[in-house]
Design a protein around this nucleic acid. Structure first.
Lengths: 203, 203
DNA sequence: TGCTTCTTACTTAACGATAAGTCAGTATAC
DNA sequence: GTATACTGACTTATCGTTAAGTAAGAAGCA
């Protein structure tokens, strides 16, 4: 049972930070959910920012490692790009708090992101940039600006995960005889997204 | 000078809500920036939520009208899709607070979005869904799930606008000999995005 | 025109709630 | 008995919101 309270705090913190973002999350709520008192949080973490950092950095490191591994395990730019997209999607699906935390961070201009966290995020993004650039050099891809392809991949994966609730709500207001396509699972989304991205970047 | 304070409040509110989101925005800051006192805000608006609603709904209505008009003014699914994407991009570029406000709303599950606001957002999204469905029916497009194409368009446009700062920061950590592609302007992004999306959905 | 009355557009002051963070003390394990 | 892992009670600051009061001008009437 060593460190069990620390683990409980981290779990509740991940949940609350992802739901409300850094500022709007209250330590009292985290304490209540993890059945500890507020000072217990301060015993384990220097302050609110340190707790947040622990939550964020842990996942950012995991993600960067995962996509690097996935890309390294595939051959050729096409397969590597597909592997990247699907690994990214799978990761967001497994750590479903993480996408929302990232979305909050993005909409806050990374206000609460430490330099180490930014570096880990950069590692994740560099991986796809490298794949795209390699593909262009090898003549397999034809891309005016790889930055755009990167944005399309990353933003679609994250937004899909974070806007589930609001999408369902907004769909309720659709008028007329539009066919509403079924909301895809993350696995399907990643596959379809990979298909579309590959089709759009192929030379 | 009639209603000049009201206008000042709305302007400052748009700026602050986009920067910090609903919860983290303080009425005191809005009051300070617009050179009025806090209760003066309450004279013009029922409460914080009503002020936010005024800010958000105004832009959501403008946007829905703009993209509907753009789509209606173009012929054929291909041209309509391009017109939609470029009109959406241009709008985000003109109202540069708006994308960030939307991003906050998305990362908060639309917690602060009224039913009217959700309906206006739905109108904007229905427009692109209609274009995609028409294209499929006419045999011009071939799309497994139009939802994914919609996500790619909307999320890329919004994220591009909202992650400018953080992208510049993250780019600073890129190691090795990666070529870093230049950050595209919104106009370029919309054009390139339209190219890529069209390429990826064409039958 | 001049006097009263009412409305508009605020201001100053303060309230209750809730936030992050602190500190002195305590139970438990070794 | 000493280090570890806490708890309860607190401080300070800031939040949204309201109550109460007021200067400036318009409206109604003589």
């Amino acid at each position: 049972m060593r460190d069990s309270k620390r683990e409980k705090i981290l779990l509740a913190a991940a949940k609350h930070f992802s739901k409300f973002g850094f500022e709007a999350t209250s330590l009292e709520d985290i304490a209540a959910e993890s059945s500890v008192t507020k000072p217990a949080i301060y015993y384990h973490f220097k302050d609110k920012a340190a707790l947040y950092e622990a939550v964020l950095l842990f996942r950012l490191e995991l993600l960067a490692n995962r996509v690097e591994k996935a890309a390294a395990g595939a051959k050729g730019p096409e397969e590597r790009l597909r592997a990247y997209i699907e690994a990214f999607g799978a990761f967001l699906n497994e750590h479903h708090c993480f996408a929302a935390t990232l979305a909050h961070e993005f909409s806050d201009d990374g206000k609460q992101m430490s330099d180490r966290a930014a570096a880990e995020l950069s590692r994740t993004l560099s991986t796809v940039t490298a794949i795209l650039n390699d593909g262009v050099e090898e003549g397999v891809f034809e891309i005016e600006n790889p930055m755009v392809a990167q944005m399309m991949i990353v933003s679609t994966l994250i937004m899909h995960q974070t806007t589930r609730t609001i999408r369902a709500r907004v769909a309720g207001y659709v008028q007329g005889e539009h066919k509403i396509s079924p909301d895809p699972s993350m696995k399907d989304l990643a596959r379809i997204l990979a298909d579309k991205i590959l089709k759009s970047v192929r030379a």
